[in-house]
Design a protein around this nucleic acid. Structure first.
Lengths: 138, 138
DNA sequence: ATCCTACAATGGACATTGTCCAAGTCAAGT
DNA sequence: ACTTGACTTGGACAATGTCCATTGTAGGAT
C-alpha cells in the first residue's frame, strides 16, 4: 500500500491522521464493511476518531469514486474498496455475507432503448441472491 | 381490484380493515412506495391505523410473495406490488424515481459455476442507474 | 521555523427508519 | 352470541445516518 493514499494526495486531499486510518482500513480489508465496522476498526488504530468523521470520509471516498456503496439489504450500507475492477455481488440471504463475482454478460446491452424511458442510463448493479455453503450446511 | 384480496383470503388471512386498506393502497398504486408512504395513504382511508400494523402487514405480504421489497438506496425500503411479473428496476440517481424495466438477457445464466463459490443461487436483481428526463432537463 | 487560514475533526443533538412488546380488540368458527 | 386466538395499538427502543457550532490542524506563505 498504498496506491489509494497516493491517488488521494494527488487529488489535493488534505492528508489527516483520520483520513489515513479510514483509507487504510478499507485498503486492508477486501471484504465489504459497514460504516460502523469501519469505525470500529478505525478506532482500534486511532481511538479518538469520531463517528461523524468516518461517515464524512466514507462519503468523500464515494464521491471521488475510490469506494463503492453497496445497499444489498435494508440494513447498513456497505463500502466496497474494489471500485476499480467492475464486478457484481453474490449475497447470502441468511447471514448477509457478500462475495464479489464476475458474470460474463453485459446487462447494459440487455436494456433496449424502448425500455429506457428517456433516462440517461449510466450504470448497472447486479445482485445475485442465494445461500452460502456455511448456511446451507447448518 | 381485487385479486389480491381474494388470494389473501384464500390463504387463510384474517381480513381486517387495516389489512384491507394496506392491500388496497398497494394494489391501487403502481409505483414503488416506502413504508411511510404506504402508512400515509393508509391513514387517509383509516385514520387510526398504526405504524406498527403497516410494517407488520407489509412484512407479511412480502413473506407471502405478494409484494417485493426493493432496496435501491440507503434510504427506506420500497414495496413493489408487481410481484407476479419478473422485472428489474431503473432508478434516477437524482430524484429516486423508479421505473420497472424488462431487459432481454438472463443474468442468472451469465454466472458460471466457477463464480458461485458453492452458493445455491436462487435469484438475481438488476438495478440500472441513470438520470430521468425530468432531472436531466433541470 | 513560525504563522495563517481554510479545510477538517469533534461530539452530541437530532432525524429517519424500523422493531418489539404488553395490553386491548375483534374476525370468524361453533 | 360466545369464545378464542390472531390482530392491532401505541409507545419505547434500536440502528443507522445527518447536521452543526466549536475546536483543531495541514500545508502553503513568510
Amino acid at each position: 500500500m498504498s496506491d489509494l493514499l497516493e491517488r488521494l494526495r494527488g487529488r489535493g486531499w488534505r492528508m489527516t491522521a483520520q483520513r489515513r486510518v479510514v483509507a487504510e482500513v478499507l485498503d486492508g480489508e477486501h471484504v465489504h464493511l459497514t460504516a460502523d465496522e469501519v469505525h470500529a476498526r478505525a478506532v482500534a488504530k486511532l481511538p479518538e476518531i469520531s463517528r461523524a468523521t468516518v461517515y464524512n470520509t466514507l462519503g468523500e471516498l464515494v464521491s471521488l469514486g475510490e469506494v463503492l456503496e453497496v445497499a444489498t439489504d435494508k440494513r447498513a450500507k456497505r463500502y466496497d474498496p474494489n471500485a476499480h475492477r467492475p464486478h457484481h455481488h453474490l449475497v447470502c440471504a441468511q447471514c448477509g455475507a457478500i462475495r464479489d463475482v464476475h458474470p460474463s454478460g453485459n446487462p447494459l446491452a440487455d436494456l433496449p432503448d424502448t425500455e429506457r424511458f428517456g433516462f440517461t442510463v449510466s450504470g448497472v448493479e447486479v445482485t445475485y441472491r442465494g445461500v452460502c455453503p456455511n448456511c446451507a450446511a447448518a
